[in-house]
Design a protein around this nucleic acid. Structure first.
Lengths: 217, 217
DNA sequence: AAATATTTCAAATGGCCATTTGAAATGGGT
DNA sequence: ACCCATTTCAAATGGCCATTTGAAATATTT
């Protein structure tokens, strides 16, 4: 561990990796301190407690990711389909990033599996903005006929694709042989194309369903 | 708790509910015994340990579910699309079942979020069969041009829809206000129709992608 | 009803882990 | 070199929880 960094910085960096790999609960303060080359009491001295360090890790990883994978802003009104295609590609890319940037989706994956006490506030702070844009884009794509409930469900379906891709990718890293593993992926771009096709195909089919049967709530 | 049942039976029934609601780790042996009206030592006496009780719960819930929601067998060769449509409807139905039957998807949801030590063996025993049939149906639907990797990904995409529906439904039951909640669902059948449309639309779009660009690995 | 096996019980035991503590080391300013 | 603030340290502390224990109660057998 780089001794040019302060203990506090080393703790955040070590914690980022370990929290992302094992989740909040399976990570012990002791092993973070070990990895950071710090004393067992360092986390409580510098951050108050484990949960606060966890929040700082979110802050840190979010900043890193937002810089490399920004959401496009324009396009969304003029061509929602293109915006959604870009969105999903960008997410898939990030999931397969080999740098620090893949730690955010990884952490997210853990947080979904076993939500911490900080769940609500973290999601509100870091995920709400992109969530609202995706929602808007889907509404524009499907058209004005969609109800709130239908929109929420279409949104959920859309998001589930890359979220679950992440799940499969994480499983791939363990020795777990069960289903829902991803094929070993030498070519993320090709994989992204297929997910993109599925996602847009699903949304367009949803649009057809909604527009061809007028009696849905 | 019904005193006509043996302590062992009461333990399994109480554990089914609590494990499904809170997951393996967040469930304490003490609260299971409480709910079953049994002594704190009852789990270890009747089952050896907590993990073995958990496996018995899987066995119990799986039997219940398999009886009410069997997989169709024929159809799959003659009309894979219809088979897949039926499959997804059946799963959505089960997720919204109000009886004991919704506990299996709920338990599954917990097991995915924080896999236990028994993960591998449970999945192999209870999920492998349906997994293979879905795989077969998707291959038949898309056609012979699909590679193993493409099939795995299409399968993952397909499954992610109802698995994530389950996630959203579980969130709905908590007071969690965050994204990925489902709209309050007074009408599961209508919801199932929309998921079905998305799923099949996604698969067909995947088929088009694969057949229109021959150079994918 | 005596003898034996099974089941229930309340009170330990022991492991794990976040957090605390108070002393020791370190560093900057004078 | 001395003072004071900051940081590091090893060794407690205390809570939580699965599991064990050995005695008491209950059921079954003869």
């Amino acid at each position: 561990m780089d001794k040019n960094l302060t203990t506090k910085e080393r703790l955040i960096q070590a914690a980022s990796v370990i929290f992302a790999e094992k989740g909040y609960r399976d990570t012990t303060v002791a092993e973070i301190c070990d990895a950071a080359g710090a004393n067992i009491a360092a986390v409580n001295y510098h951050f108050g407690d484990k949960s606060n360090l966890y929040c700082q890790v979110w802050e840190y990883l979010f900043e890193q990711s937002a810089a490399k994978y920004p959401l496009p802003t324009d396009l969304i009104e003029t061509d929602p389909e293109a915006w959604l295609r870009h969105f999903i590609r960008s997410r898939v890319e990030q999931i397969f990033d080999t740098d620090i940037h893949h730690r955010l989706p990884q952490l997210l994956h853990r947080e979904m599996g076993e939500p911490t006490e900080m769940h609500e506030s973290l999601f509100e702070k870091y995920l709400q903005p992109s969530h609202q844009r995706v929602s808007k884009a889907i509404r524009l794509l499907i058209g004005p006929g969609i109800s709130e409930n239908q929109l929420k469900l279409a949104h959920l379906n859309f998001m589930s694709l890359h979220i679950f891709l992440n799940v499969g990718h994480q499983k791939n890293k363990t020795n777990c042989q069960c289903r829902h593993r991803l094929p070993s992926t030498e070519n993320p771009a090709e994989l992204a194309r297929q997910v993109e096709a599925f996602a847009i195909g699903g949304l367009l089919a949803t649009r057809d369903l909604i527009h061809n049967t007028g009696n849905l709530s």
